[in-house]
Design a binder for these strands. Sequence first.
RNA 1: GCGCUCGUAGCUCAAUUGGAUAGAGCAACGGACUUCGGAUCCGUAGGUUGUAGGUUCGACUCCUUUCGAGCGCACCA
Length: 528
Amino acid sequence: MKKSVIKAVKEILQREFVLEKPANLSFGHYATPIAFSLAKELKKSPITIAEELCSTFDSHAIFKEVTAIKGYINFKLSESFLDSYATWALQNETSFGSDTRDQSILLEYVSANPTGPLHIGHARGAVIGDSLYKIGRHLGYNIVSEYYINDAGNQVDLLGLSIFLAGREHILGLDIVWPDEFYRGEYIIDLAHVANGELGSSIFEKDENIATLSVWGKDKMLELIQSNLADVGIVFEKFVSEKSLYDRWDASFEKLQAHGKTYEEGGKTWIRSTDLGDEKDRVVVRDDGRPTYLAGDIIYHDNKFQRGYDKYINIWGADHHGYIARVKAAINFLGYDESKLEVILAQMVSLLKGGEPYKMSKRAGNFILMSDVVAEIGSDALRFVFLSKKSDTHLEFDIDVFKQEDSNNPIFYINYAHARINQIFAKAGKSLEDVHSITLENLSEEAQNLLFSALLLPEVLEDAFESRQVQKVTEYLKNLAAVLHKFYNENRVIGSDDEDKLLKLFAMVGMSLRVGLKLIGITAKEKM
RNA sequence: GCGCUCGUAGCUCAAUUGGAUAGAGCAACGGACUUCGGAUCCGUAGGUUGUAGGUUCGACUCCUUUCGAGCGCACCA
């Protein structure tokens, strides 16, 4: 819809311009402030320019009216244009808002360590990533989702040790001296019991079994994480193991060397990341010859860029923000364009419980499990809460308030609008086919506005995806539901002269609600 | 100390990425039910956009100052 307007306006103005929504729908459907930017050039007032430009739009069929108000040029679409668009959309639900694009995108998100279940902080990035993925696909991007498994290094060793010690304490009944660093939490004890069942209690007898428990535990945790994700409708296309990458280190290292960005000092190998604005140079190989975590990420990004995507999006927890500079520097040193990497930071989620701060930590066992929250409020509400806020703002909510949310939850409000539409069709004893051929014209002002709102979905999706701000979709859906509820209260459909027209209009609204919800991972309810 | 992110109604958040009178929900108060499901709608009240400057036709948005909050500042992942 927006594209048609841009095309039409461009034909007439013959120059670039900004198209936006007017402050008030009564002004028109779209507007441009171009007169302001022309004012200096033409040495005339914006108001005069806008009025002059208006008259040049008279002939165009897609506009009902073009008016100048306080320097803005406002465009009102014709009813026949809106009707034909809606009629087409209703016949093509799956492709409504869909398009073909040639850009390819690799989207990496979650990538939580396989050393414990997902907690509520992971959920934010997970839900945002998955929604971007679903929307991007719908918009026609060639987009692939990927999970990077940190299955190498100390953390996984620590997991093995923790399970081992838990087994010795809880299964063998031995007295344990716990080291400073280990994973706490019920799930470690649970794992020890499962290991006891699958591997036998003898696994806890000898220290050399710790390595076995590490690998075993990591696989179990990965299964658990995947199951946690599946519970909120998230399935990854691809998993990449950090461990499997290290034998390619030599090849990646050669590239860095070829660009002269490495050096030896103190028996260690460094990269000159300060050349590209990092705070300090970084060690990539320790003095004992073991590569660091960054080395793994260098190989991984080398591997990613070799796969040749147009764009790489990583969603990280905000506590990793200090990591961006060194990874971008490394990508540059490998000989790639680091601007193709875009990092979205999902800010911290702080939880309260009964007004008290609820401290979260991966290492300690007192984090709140994502699966617990899902069990209490459901996947839809969890997704909606995280999708309603910009990812880069700190988010705080009280878990008790969150539990209470029922009718106050906007997800119910939107679902109710959708269910109402189904209900009214049922009550009228009609289906979409019965009203499909009717033309949507001579509608009231309110009905036209409702129709227009429903038809905005495609451009909202596009805007949300391109700005990577999914809250635009939830905002839109809340607004569309509100317009529908208001209209419903003020207008009787069944038995009115315009019954079929209004049913068709409602069908269009229902479709936008349904498609929009689907793309943020929520299934619209047929009835409540 | 240095860096990144964020300060918008009592609370949780929006604001077309520099545009028109800064908007929703919750909480408060007052209305609308012989209703196509009231899980809804309407109204009232609530703001110097943390502070102080600057840039321009125009600033919540960009720049500078300052205050506050969170996070980071590993050869851990």
